[in-house]
Amino acid sequence: MGGYGDVKLLNDDGTRLDGRKVDEMRSVEIKAGILPNADGSAWVKHGLNVAICAVYGPVEAHPRKIQRQDRAVIDVRYNMAPFSTSDRIRPGYNRRSREISKVTAEALESVVLVERFPRSKISVEIEILAAEAGTRCAGITAASVALADAGIPMRDLIVGVASGKIEDTVVLDLDKAEDNYGQADLPVGILPTTGDLAFLQMDGDLSPDEFNLCMEYNQKAAKEIHEVMIKALKEKYEEGA
């Protein structure tokens, strides 16, 4: 988290700078099947974040040494486009994107029935085209819609969502200013059917009670986003039906 305290993030009436209530998330739009070349794909607009994701596979895992005899490996590449942030990012992998790719892959491996595809690889390419705090969550949401769109069997979807703390107040779904000047950020990946967690990160300062409230907000938001995900997945099959 960035600086603390000195930037005002809450209005006098308790609302946030963009007018949202503390437990209100930004708008979320999702489309499935947007990339003609991919086996499955998704576009997620969460607030001003834009993430697109392509899934390719399963295909035989190369090189041999990454093959698992009993299951598929999920190869995630989370990448921010050079123009996605306020200051241009030099193209290429960095420590941050490598870490996010790793934990995102592990989250997805927890829901995909990887044991159905021994020795295979499923590639998940997440590209962030616009970033406004919360790109890893938008990426997870996009990845699980794209996997489902590819027809890859999964025991549940995963919803990416975050809560945090600004001016000692717990709020749902931090925007850019809140992320920069807030006190804590708790991004999670939630299995909407069971409420279980497949992804968890946090930085900043939260009391156990504040953590619990963050989680409550996250669970509530996950249900809302889940509805949008299902609608996106079904849309193309129900239209013209």
């Binding site: 990339l35 070349n37 991919a38 697109i52 994701c53 392509a54 390719y56 590449r77 990448n79 486009a81 050079p82 193209p91 590639s123 390419e125 590209e127």
Partner: peptide, 10 residues
């Protein structure tokens, strides 16, 4: 500059 990343195709 251009990037041809794996998202673009197999």
């Amino acid at each position: 500059g251009a990037e041809l990343r794996p998202i673009a195709g197999k």
